[in-house]
Design a protein around this nucleic acid. Sequence first.
DNA 1: CGATGTCATGACATCGGTGTCACTACGTCC
DNA 2: GGACGTAGTGACACCGATGTCATGACATCG
Lengths: 360, 360
Amino acid sequence: MATIYDVAKAAGVSPKTVSRVLNGDAPVGTATRDAVNAAIASLGYVPSSAARMMRSNKSGLIGLITGAISDQIEPAQPAGLPELLLVRGIQQTIGVTGKTLMIADSGNRSERVPELIKTFLEHRVEGLIYVAPYHQNVWLPPIPSDTPIVLTNCFDDIGTPAVIPDDRRGQHDLVARLIAAGHERIAYLTLREDIVATGLRRTGYRDALGEAGLSYDPALVECGEIGSPEVETQVLWTAIDRMLNLSQPPTVFCCGNDRQALKVYGILRSRGLAVPDDISVAGYDNYRVIAETLYPPLTTVELAYTAMGVRAAQRLLSLISGDSPENAGPDIVAGPVYWRQSVTERRSPNVSQLKLVRED
Amino acid sequence: MATIYDVAKAAGVSPKTVSRVLNGDAPVGTATRDAVNAAIASLGYVPSSAARMMRSNKSGLIGLITGAISDQIEPAQPAGLPELLLVRGIQQTIGVTGKTLMIADSGNRSERVPELIKTFLEHRVEGLIYVAPYHQNVWLPPIPSDTPIVLTNCFDDIGTPAVIPDDRRGQHDLVARLIAAGHERIAYLTLREDIVATGLRRTGYRDALGEAGLSYDPALVECGEIGSPEVETQVLWTAIDRMLNLSQPPTVFCCGNDRQALKVYGILRSRGLAVPDDISVAGYDNYRVIAETLYPPLTTVELAYTAMGVRAAQRLLSLISGDSPENAGPDIVAGPVYWRQSVTERRSPNVSQLKLVRED
DNA sequence: CGATGTCATGACATCGGTGTCACTACGTCC
DNA sequence: GGACGTAGTGACACCGATGTCATGACATCG
């Protein structure tokens, strides 16, 4: 591969002048510049970032550690694929700065993370982003303090900068909107009890009921995700069956995620109930492949992955720039409610009072 | 950041000896080795891959260009997210070799590809993989011949090494299995006519019919994906309606992908038809979030993305090693049929003659 | 007209590792 | 006992860029 010396010789100038043409950091005569560019083109010269990095001590690299790419090893995992959107948001934001994103995949095996971090440090990344597959508490091995890191979709106990979803508000806004549509008996099929989102969302659910003066009925709340995936349908079926036989049955089922809602569609229809004419269904995530494709399309709350990715990248970039040790707490990002045809309007809501989309 | 000189000084040896401890490429006395390792630990020394790369001219980097991460800009796109599995397969295979995968995202904007390639070349990647979001013909800008490249999920006109899915065989195997289950009137709702997979799969469909002595009835084949996503449901509804009113209506609908099958579930049920008791449905892709979650679970063909990724990475690694200019043609990877409850067995098939899973 | 400033360019050192070569002890073999 | 092989180590150059400094040719200004 041609070097800057080859180019210099071919153009009849010094290597330093070639460097100046490449970087435009000092004036170069027009004729000289043309000669250099011609030499570069004819030799197919591509500068070596390794050599450049050595001298300048700036790598232009951002390291991203994720399990997204190798997700699904645990198929029971809550979010799954949509985590990809996080990476998209990060990529978009990093890309425009001219920095290069290096992505390494932990395969969701946390014991591999230290070696991935080591590789990144060897490449002298200017910052690190760790992306979790779903909202959770994590622990990462210590990182040299001169390399900033931002946690995304997760947080730790030592106050590392983090960006997390606003699960409480998301569920709250959805339930508030359902209430505005005239629903008062709102069933809630939750995700596994041990994940962070479940607790936060239940709080949001209760808050929305409370604000509307509706009482919280434990009979309408049940975990729909117990044990292995095989028995999941049975668990849901049983829970739905019980709730439909209540003296005051629900008029709408809120599901822990869109995938669960997809399952609930099938179960309700197998019982001869039409969605939404006989019973309404709402999801969570706005996992578009499901939510938009389902027939009828699914009302849901967006888990604002892309926005979170953007936020995380922005925060990392500002840490790299050295400014703002300000914002110490985690960045909490909310997403809008997507109102589709899976929920009936039992009374026409005063839409003007509602912000269906509140994303900035 | 500490350098190898700092470590050498702290350990009282020469930098070269530290290098030997790090790389294990020459014998080092036990006491010396311990002293060096102690110095490395206490200084938090991390070797600079840039400096190493300069001297050795080996980057240990593989470049991956994908649109996966920023897919969905064109929401009408056939495959979408599952392309992620390709990246997973690649990652797995590259990872064990100790090389590092750099992933860049084109955002599906082909005009950005040249700059991404340039960045990779500056980092002196040892090889490139280009991943397309769905099976297609592509054109890439010329790459220096000393950097091998493998196309994945796509191919070009100049014989670049490529790994593509066996669409013909996948559809063939599915239809053959449907026939074995006693179905003779097999409807086929295709994807857009302009994509490569559609033509190949229709060939597979016809081949399977022909082998079973069944005639090809054009009335049972129709494109289910015309125009904008908004009208997609209407298009499907109309096609299904027409076919169900044929004098000999189909007993099963083959769909262009699992997403379409999800939509078909809703449409059929809205017409009062139960899946699979009244009518059977099959998909394509084995997009597990849909196929396994649908109620009842969906019979489909796996689009063997992970296996393709593995194959692509293996092929690139062998190109890098310099061996095998052998295998010139594209690598065609088939996936197995997944038989689930969305299709009835109209007669019990002679299962012993069928290989449900033929993946190696 | 000399002082000063800007343009345009090159010489040279330097970043942090590793390849090459040289050198010192030993142990072994004929 | 001298030739030879091997373990263990260091000196030094080098990879390919860029930062620093110096230099010469002009233009401008008071």
